[in-house]
Amino acid sequence: MYRMPQRGWTRLALAFSCSLPMLCQAKPLSAAEQAFVGEYKQSSVDTLAQLLLTDDHTFCYSFMGGARDRLLAGHWQAVPGQASRIRLTEQRASQPLFPVLLSATPGEAGKVQFDFHGYSLSEANRPGFAIGTDENLPGALRPLFVEDKSSWSESYLTPALAKAQARYFYLGQLELTPSGQPGLLKVSQYPLKPGQQLRVGFDAAQAEALLDAEAELKRDTLYIQGGRFGHRQPAKAELVAQARESCIQPILANKPAPDSEPDSGTAGQMLKPLRQFTLPASALQGAVWFPEQAE
C-alpha cells in the first residue's frame, strides 16, 4: 500500500551520474558551510537516527525504530548572518493522505467493494468513511473503527455496494490541535469506478508536518531546534553516493502524478481525489463501519 524507507541506506551506489540540475550545479560552499558537511548519528537501545549533510546543500535523514521507519530528504541553507546555524527544509511530493488502489480482484458488475488496510489505517486519527449518490458533499462521515481499537486485522471488507448507492466516496481523519484536542475533520472526495474492489490505506508520512528546522553547530556537535543530535563525522564517499541514489535523488525528483482519470480496468492504479474539504469534528458520527475487534 505504501513504500517503506530502506533501512540504513542499504543499497550501495556503484556509480553516481548526476541527473538533477539542482544537484549538479550547486553553489560552492563557504568555509562556515563546509564545517557542517558530514554524517551525524543519534542512537538508543532500539532506535537509530542518521543525518547526512552533503556539499551540494542537500540532506538525507533516516530514522529506524518504533512503529514506523522514516526517510526524509531536502535542502539545507545557511542562516543569514549566523555562521553557526543552518536551516533544514524537507521536500516531499504531495500524495493522497488515503491511497486508494484498484484491486486485481474482480468485482460484481455494477457494484463496488472497499477493502480497508487495517495496519496502515491504524495510524490515522479516527478515520471516517461515507458514500454518496450525487455531487452534494456529505455533512457527516461514519467512523471506520471503534475509537479504542487496539488490535488490527490485515483487511476489512465492506459488502458489495450497488452503483446507485455510491457514485462518490469520502475518506477523512480528525486533525489535532497543537494542544492535542480534536480539530477539523479533513475529508477527500473520490470518484467511484464500479466493477472492482478498491484497496484503501493511509499514508502516515503525508499526515506529518514537513521538517523545517534550524540546526546549530557547537564544537562539531549538531543541535536541532535546541536539542543535541550528534557529533559530526566525515562521510565516506560510498555513503554519500549511497544516500544520493537511494534517498536524496528519488525523493527530490518525486513529483505528483499528472492530472488524469484512472482507467477503471487497470489493477494497481491509484485513484486521484477530486477535492479536499473540512468539516467540524462533530461531523464524525454514527455507527462504526467495522464494530468488531480483530482476533
Rank of each mutant, 00 (worst) to 15 (best):
R87N: 12
L88M: 11
T89P: 06
E90M: 10
E90R: 07
E90D: 09
E90H: 06
E90S: 04
Q95W: 08
Q95I: 00
P96M: 01
P96L: 04
L97G: 02
P99R: 06
V100R: 02
L101K: 00
S103A: 14
S103G: 15
T105G: 05
T105F: 02
T105A: 14
G107T: 05
E108Q: 15
A109D: 14
G110I: 10
G110T: 10
K111M: 11
V112R: 02
V112G: 00
Q113T: 04
F114C: 01
D115F: 03
F116T: 01
H117W: 00
Y119H: 14
S120Y: 07
S120R: 03
S120E: 15
S120D: 15
S122F: 07
E123Y: 15
N125K: 01
R126A: 11
G128N: 10
G128M: 05
F129A: 10
A130G: 00
I131V: 15
G132A: 13
D134L: 09
D134F: 06
D134I: 03
E135N: 13
E135H: 10
P138V: 10
G139R: 13
A140Y: 09
A140F: 12
R142N: 14
R142G: 01
P143D: 02
V146G: 12
V146C: 10
E147R: 13
E147F: 13
D148P: 01
K149V: 12
W152I: 10
W152S: 11
S153R: 00
E154S: 15
S155R: 14
S155W: 01
L157Y: 02
L157K: 13
P159L: 09
P159F: 04
A160D: 05
A160K: 09
A164E: 15
A166G: 10
A166I: 04
R167E: 11
F169M: 02
Y170T: 00
L174I: 15
L174G: 05
E175R: 13
L176P: 03
P178F: 04
S179I: 06
S179H: 05
G180S: 09
P182L: 09
G183Y: 00
G183E: 03
K186E: 12
K186I: 07
Q189L: 11
Q189A: 14
L192V: 13
K193M: 10
P194M: 08
G195C: 08
Q197T: 09
L198H: 02
L198M: 15
R199S: 13
R199E: 10
F202S: 05
A205Q: 12
A205E: 15
